[in-house]
């Protein structure tokens, strides 16, 4: 099970939970598994089949704008975070 860190602003969708354990072999699978438990989550994070430009994801400490096919390990940690603006 991958551990997903839900950002504070999306926790209301997940009953206030900060961490979820979900199954999924790819980032897309993981996000869809979160969506199944937290309806409305997906559209906040994904648009037109890719992460929204204002959103980034960190998988096991590596942050970036990953494709949804990015592999996620069975014990991986996935964080949803705002993309880093540099001005």
């Amino acid at each position: 099970m991958a551990e997903v860190w839900v950002p504070a602003l999306l926790r209301p969708l997940c009953g206030g939970t900060a961490r979820l354990q979900v199954e999924g072999a790819t980032l897309g699978d993981v996000l869809r598994a979160v969506e199944a438990r937290c309806p409305g989550f997906m559209e906040r994070v994904v648009s037109e089949g890719a992460l929204r430009p204002e959103i980034a994801v960190a998988i096991d400490g590596e942050a970036g704008s990953f494709p949804l096919f990015e592999p996620v390990g069975p014990a991986s940690h996935v964080s949803i975070l705002p993309a880093i603006g540099g001005g």
């Binding site: 860190w5 950002p7 900060a18 961490r19 960190a58 400490g61 942050a63 940690h77 964080s79 975070l81």
Partner: peptide
């Protein structure tokens, strides 16, 4: 963990 949940390497 950083505040965004990421564990530091």
């Amino acid at each position: 963990r950083m505040v965004n949940g990421m564990p530091f390497p």
